[in-house]
Design a protein around this nucleic acid. Structure first.
Lengths: 210, 210
DNA sequence: TAATAAATACCCTGTAGACGGTATTTTTAC
DNA sequence: GTAAAAATACCGTCTACAGGGTATTTATTA
């Protein structure tokens, strides 16, 4: 007898959830046990609902898919997570992988990819669409000599740079030395492979870091 | 016998045009003689259509309301122009006034304002909604010591600064001296009342200059 | 045609920040 | 408990650019 896997869906657009339901209803072996348009809300429900697989959007208003993934993996490590996204930004994909996802699929690809992902993940494997893999390869190549992931502190400082604060001001606000801010700035520019503030901000905007 | 004024509408959203039609149909003394969702297209039609009043959107893809206004005023000086906009950015309003509009109304205000504007403008007067007047007053106060309108060249340079080009590069691309770029940059910062590139770009983004 | 605005150009000064190091403490992870 | 990652900190150099002038040529407009 086949084991039916239970799925929980989180996406801030109800329409997307409905679409996923339609697709999943056509395949055997999976059962949707819950849904939510809000990540924090989903966390609450998951405490009282048994789910094997969590399908979650990446960009959501209250809480990003990355944060949700981290929290779910912490509280319910047995739940496998598949990320759904409109974009294949390698920075985001990398963070999601780091957060513990088992799969990442693009919303604009066909239902076949979703089905394959569900099957793979449900039997313990990972699934990343061809586009994603390609992106990751590129990104890896570009950053093979650089650990390019920005730290929380660095992102915090990027946000302040964007507010047009100088090193002195940032130092005062964070209660750290101006030297430290300089170091952070230096590391940020190196990691993002940019040379000036303007280039950095473009980089940040493109990757939706700020 | 009342003279019926003919109106031409330009807005890239057909929905807005339809809404305006509904409102204008309820009032006497006005007749819609044409419409277009494209500014260049509208210019063509106006050559063969008699219109007294042009209702135009401010932000449109191919050609902005400002450009359209300038061209219409040049080719058909008798046509009175009323600008429609979602925003009351004083910079934009000022440019529209400079271009030769007779009225400026916000899209989110009631139909009463539109009717009043049409009546005022059709008998040779101007009409600017209370919000607009307020904005202009503020702006005037802020810039009374500064001629703050940016020139075309200056905006061109802002766009290049945004692309993260240095003074040297900009100079080369525009075939002018680096000194000239420095002067422009200086004037831009003075006019926009900003100190750094980042501040300038924030200013530009807020006012939708770039 | 006279006046005004815009675009062009040069010079000098001071400083913020980009870029090169090195190094210690704290936090996280295994 | 130890290794790795992140955050902290300092130093020197050098350049791009902000900010202060002044001035000429080229539209534009009255």
């Amino acid at each position: 007898m086949e084991v039916v896997k239970s799925i929980f869906i989180v996406d801030d657009h109800q329409m997307v959830i409905d679409g996923l339901r339609l697709i999943i209803d056509t395949i055997n072996g999976f059962d949707i046990v819950g849904e939510s348009t809000s990540a924090p809300h989903a966390l609450d429900i998951l405490a009282t609902t048994h789910a094997d697989i969590l399908l979650t959007d990446v960009s959501m208003p209250e809480m990003s898919g990355i944060e949700l993934t981290r929290l779910v993996k912490k509280k319910f490590p047995h739940i496998k997570i598949i990320a759904l996204s409109m974009f294949s930004e390698s920075q985001v994909v990398a963070e999601m992988i780091d957060a513990g996802i088992s799969g990442y699929i693009l919303k604009n690809t066909g239902k076949q990819e979703l089905i394959e992902a569900l099957n793979k993940v449900s039997c313990g494997q990972n699934y990343f669409g061809p586009d994603i893999t390609l992106q990751l390869m590129k990104s890896f190549k570009r950053n093979q000599d650089e650990t390019s992931r920005l730290t929380d502190r660095e992102i915090e400082i990027i946000r302040m740079i964007e507010q047009d604060f100088g090193n002195k001001q940032i130092a005062d606000m964070l209660f750290i030395s101006e030297r430290t801010v300089e170091t952070h700035r230096k590391n940020i520019l190196r990691k993002t492979n940019t040379q000036t503030v303007v280039g950095l901000l473009k980089y940040a905007y493109e990757r939706k870091i700020i």
